[in-house]
Design a protein around this nucleic acid. Structure first.
Length: 466
DNA sequence: TTGTGTTTTATTGCCTCC
DNA sequence: GGAGGCAATAAAACACAA
């Protein structure tokens, strides 16, 4: 490996010298990087060096990649927040949304909000020990939230990897031991504006300083959570709702959460409830749907718990989900490929230059099992190589089914969704029901979430108001 | 096949911390 | 002042629609 790495490195360098143009990282590299990133947003020098060596990249490249990856996460987070804001406004339910969290993230290109949240300062203070059942949120979410924040936890929002992060947080990664202070921070970046928190360090007082913002965020979160219960509790914000039949919001999908998907919920009791709440509050039905599916691959993994199992789904599921959204006719084909490893479908090393669709994002992020005790690159790369051929085979078998994994789709779809959502009747249970049940996966719950919240909120609200 | 849009990679400058 | 990180920007690579 060492030799190969070096050789690879040399080759890489040479190629770089020969070709000044930027070079896409191989799926294996990206895979390794993503995986590593999921574990360590801020790798140490040593880690970078090690990673660089293993991946045959330069430390500079590694650093750069991580830097951009973090930016990417932030961007995603911002988009998510923005979408949330819009959703809230559009739904007419939450109009004060998180004290400008959305505003900053949406309006300001240079949002120092995130910038000043030093993940490293907070990451080690995760307090996911509490669950936030939607029902409870309505009553006590704020206090929870505030407490948690003041207690040095911050999970108000998540990005693609932030979610994964926390997923990974469960893993016993060798690196965690020595670099635990660099992990699981991403969620912290959150929607909460902790400007200046950098200097706050772990001092509760520091967080208390932003309590107001936190409260707003918490309130927003509560509102979101309450969305489904508006009719039960009465029309909020002066919006009159037409009476709906009991259980109008009880979509099958959501039932699955408590029923079939109980697994998920129950597990959510574990340290990841924030994530879940985060997921649930994913805005626009579609958007959340999209975002969720595109971002929370690891969530599946988390639910699956067993790494071996985790490998088997996420990306596949994500693919399926995306397919279902984009081309519903393809859903079953893909999802019906049992035993397919996520990475399996993602990495077509041989053709990565040709088909971006099989490259990084999903495949990589989909790989969530954290067990790369040092030979990250080699293992992952090997996996990528190994699966590449299978991928081809799979694709061929699938025939017309075009497996797309490119991250582009996420955004693109999301954007489309923002526009299309109103027209799309996600609120109807039928539509959800038509989606192939993805058992053993959060996917289902992911779908349910949207339908039970803003989507319904939006739909119902608008309809009733109209 | 081409144009357009998106994503990824690389570079640069600025800021903060030590 | 150096190191690390973030943000902005440019450019290449890629996907997709016309």
């Amino acid at each position: 490996m060492e030799e190969s790495s070096e050789a690879h490195s040399e080759e890489n360098k040479v190629s770089q010298d020969n070709n000044k143009k930027r070079r896409l990282k191989t799926p294996g590299q990206v895979m390794a990087l993503e995986k590593f990133y999921n574990e360590h947003k801020y790798p140490t020098e040593e880690m970078k060096s090690d990673l660089a060596e293993q991946l045959g990249l330069t430390e500079k490249q590694i650093s750069g990649w991580f830097c951009h990856r973090r930016l990417k996460d932030k961007k995603l987070l911002r988009d998510e927040t923005c979408t949330n804001g819009r959703q809230d406004r559009s739904s007419g339910i939450i109009q004060d949304r998180g004290s400008g969290l959305g505003q900053d993230s949406c309006g300001s290109t240079k949002n120092a909000d995130y910038k000043h949240v030093d993940p490293r300062e907070v990451e080690s203070h995760r307090l996911y020990g509490q669950d936030f059942p939607a029902a409870e949120l309505g009553h006590d979410h704020r206090s929870h939230y505030t407490e948690r924040v003041s207690g040095l936890d911050n999970t108000s929002s998540e990005s693609s990897s932030s979610l994964q992060d926390r997923m990974f947080s469960q893993s016993d990664n060798p690196y965690d031991m020595e670099t635990s202070r660099y992990i699981k921070h991403e969620g912290v970046i959150a929607a909460i504006n902790l400007k200046g928190s950098r200097n706050m360090g772990h001092k509760p007082s520091g967080y208390l300083k932003v309590k107001g913002e936190i409260e707003n965020a918490a309130i927003t979160a509560v509102k979101r959570q309450l969305g489904r219960h508006y009719l039960e509790d009465g029309p909020p914000l002066g919006v009159e709702f037409e009476p709906l039949p009991p259980g109008a919001f009880e979509s099958p999908a959501r039932d699955t959460v408590h029923g079939t998907e109980t697994y998920y919920v129950e597990n959510s009791v574990l340290p990841h409830s924030p994530d879940i709440s985060g997921m649930k509050r994913q805005l626009s039905p579609c958007t959340r749907f999209e975002v969720y599916n595109s971002k929370v691959s690891s969530k599946d993994s988390y639910v699956q718990e067993a790494p071996s199992v985790m490998h088997g789904f996420d990306s596949q599921e994500m693919e399926t989900s995306k397919q279902s959204r984009k081309k519903s006719t393809h859903v079953n084909h893909i999802s019906s490929l049992p035993g397919r490893n996520s990475s399996l479908n993602m990495h077509d090393e041989s053709g990565y230059n040709k088909k971006r669709k099989v490259s990084s994002k999903h495949g990589v992020e989909g790989v969530t099992s954290g067990q790369y005790g040092g030979k990250i690159a080699s293992e992952l790369t090997a996996q990528g190589d190994k699966y590449n051929e299978e991928v081809k085979a799979t694709k061929e078998q699938c025939g017309p089914v075009k497996i797309k994994t490119k991250s582009t789709n996420e955004v693109m779809v999301s954007k489309k969704v923002k526009v299309d959502c109103p027209q799309r009747d996600y609120g109807t249970n039928s539509s959800l029901a038509q989606i192939p049940p993805l058992k053993n996966h959060i996917r289902g719950s992911a779908m349910e979430m949207p339908s039970s919240f803003s989507e319904d909120e939006t739909a119902e609200t608008s309809s009733s108001v109209d």
